[in-house]
């Protein structure tokens, strides 16, 4: 006892030494700038210098037609982008994972590796690759559709206001389907055998077993995927920028919050860059993501745990 008391007394400097580098870099480059950006959104540049304007920037962004039109357009587009991901990416991911999780299936490792390839490529590559494939000039997409007799369906999707955003969302789904597939696959594999055996004894097999037993058990994994997708989508930029440029054409129909932030912050063509409005948009994105994450942590995740136990 006495020895322990002596050992405990000295300041344990090594803990501070172990923590210091990570905490310093993280705080200086991540946390301080995040709050710095929130702070910048409360100021504005005038001729005399920088003045505090409270929430005026936010009011303008949300209500002044000059800003609000672009903002609501970008927000809605972003929401649609997210909806497509949820509706397409997750079901495909679940389907692929369910098939892959069959232990008797051959070449599992090959399929797993191959389907994950697009996920490791950069948005820039993916954006350009699909831009080329869908381009009417090259004609790969119409040729392929012709092979299956569906050529009449072809349209220059990326150039049409009504299709461009959905097309890009599907391209993004194509790229990221590997992540839900892997996470759900892992969740499916970790279901204890006893549960499945018990189900089989009760005559619950095949599809019924999937819907009634496996799917409810992988719901937490689907929850994690949804929140990861949410954060990723509301912070997206690269894909739209590489495929459609900073103007997010045609006619801003693919403009999302990330490209809107970029244009506002740096300016584009005749519009001058605006640090404070840029910070205001970044702050709005921060609040949107924070709301989504809190909703997940405090509402969805808790309810799921209650289902489990």
């Amino acid at each position: 006892m006495a020895q322990q008391a002596i050992l405990k007394k000295p300041v344990r400097w090594h803990i501070a030494v172990f923590l210091a580098p990570a905490v310093l870099v993280y705080t200086a480059i991540m946390i301080i700038p995040l709050f710095g950006t929130l702070q910048l959104s409360l100021f504005r540049e005038v001729e005399a210098g920088t003045i505090y304007v409270g929430l005026q920037n936010f009011r303008e962004l949300l209500t002044d037609p000059h800003w609000s039109q672009s903002f609501w357009n970008a927000l809605w587009n972003n929401t649609w982008f997210f909806i497509i991901h949820m509706l397409v990416q997750n079901p495909i991911g679940i389907l692929l994972a369910a098939i892959l999780s069959n232990p008797k299936l051959r070449m599992r490792a090959f399929y797993r590796t191959a389907i994950f390839v697009p996920t490791i490529l950069s948005f820039v590559i993916v954006g350009f690759v699909w831009k080329l494939i869908l381009s009417p000039i090259w004609g790969v997409a119409p040729n392929l559709l012709d092979l299956v007799g569906l050529k009449f369906l072809f349209a220059p999707w990326l150039g049409k206001e009504e299709y461009a955003l959905t097309t890009l969302a599907l391209v993004s789904v194509w790229q990221f389907v590997g992540i839900p597939m892997m996470l759900i696959y892992a969740a499916l594999l970790s279901i204890p055998d006893e549960i499945l055996e018990a189900a089989e004894c009760d005559g619950v097999t095949g599809m019924a077993q999937f819907w009634k037993i496996k799917l409810p058990l992988v719901l937490p994994a689907i929850g994690i995927i949804s929140i990861l997708t949410f954060v990723g989508n509301f912070n997206a930029f690269d894909l739209i920028y590489s495929a459609q440029g900073a103007l997010a054409g045609p006619n801003f129909s693919t403009d999302i919050l990330g490209t809107f932030l970029y244009r506002t912050f740096f300016g584009f063509q005749l519009q001058l860059g605006d640090t404070h409005m840029g910070a205001t948009i970044a702050s709005m994105m921060f609040f949107i993501i924070l709301t989504g994450v809190s909703l997940y942590l405090f509402v969805i995740q808790r309810r799921m745990q209650r289902y489990q136990f």
Binding site: I29, M30, I32, P33, L34, F35, G36, T37, Q39, L40, I227, V231, N235, F237, G258, L261, F265, T275, G278, A279, A282, S283, M285, F286, I289, L290, V293
Partner: peptide
């Protein structure tokens, strides 16, 4: 959970 990109404006200033 919070992407570092959202701090870009201030990061550039720093």
């Amino acid at each position: 959970m919070i992407p570092i990109r959202l701090g870009t404006v201030a990061i550039l200033q720093i």
